[in-house]
Design a protein around this nucleic acid. Sequence first.
DNA 1: CGCGAAATGTAGCCTGGGCTACAACTTTGG
DNA 2: CCAAAGTTGTAGCCCAGGCTACATTTCGCG
Lengths: 144, 144
Amino acid sequence: MTETDPTQIKGFDRARQAASRALAEDYVEMISDLAREFGEARITDIAARLGVAHPTANKAVARLKREGLAVSRPYRGVFLTEEGEALAEQVRARHRVVVALLRAVGVPDEVAELDAEGIEHHVSQRTLRAFEAYLARSETGKQG
Amino acid sequence: MTETDPTQIKGFDRARQAASRALAEDYVEMISDLAREFGEARITDIAARLGVAHPTANKAVARLKREGLAVSRPYRGVFLTEEGEALAEQVRARHRVVVALLRAVGVPDEVAELDAEGIEHHVSQRTLRAFEAYLARSETGKQG
DNA sequence: CGCGAAATGTAGCCTGGGCTACAACTTTGG
DNA sequence: CCAAAGTTGTAGCCCAGGCTACATTTCGCG
């Protein structure tokens, strides 16, 4: 028992990495939302919506800036880079698909929204594509 | 913008809490698996399978003991309490349902296994029940 | 304009989960 | 039966994400 099944390990590792990426995704999506609503995303608003204290949001934004997803000048609003905006759009799209899939298989709307928030970060590209294909099928086929 | 939509906050909080619970669930399931295979779960084996160093597994087991999910005497194997075993069974069952659901909507088998590992921890009771109902339906209905 | 309120930034601490290094205990085989 | 090997436990560190407290800057308004 020194090697152990690599599949296991890989699976858990994936989960841990996803947890890390999830944070950035949440922030990027939130910043994009706020930009749409108010024209810019303020630290206070980001923090409030995410339910964290403002220094926490500040740290997170600093990380996004380091990663090239956002930009901001001191005491000014936060804006996404093109890369950040692309990620936000991707996250938003995935969220919609996951919610739609959940609803399509019979999950109540409010529950679908809540669960999707956690689930979406673990949905791989291939699974996402499978979801989309399924939704396309059930749109036309109408078996539910 | 001081109150903000509580739905948002609740959603994110749920995700964060789930991330914390996920660890315990992984360990409990693994301990249960090892108990079935070898009669007991040794720290070294738990660590190896989860892909972490043994002190990490040790800490996690200490936490499970604190939470009443496991018991162990120094330098001896780890065993689940009834509560821990129940949780393990529940986690295992949920994993099976999530994998089955993913496959049912067209996700390739290997991908389903990997993604389920991350997704399952965010599947609420109500969503799980919806999954089960859907699977029951598609078993008999056979629309795929 | 100038001052108080609000927003942002910074410092420093806590917790949890991960690691390495090392100590203590068990097992095993010569 | 006892030393070496293996296993478990402990100490102490790191990092990330969260918080509070406090400093600084900007904004709004009299």
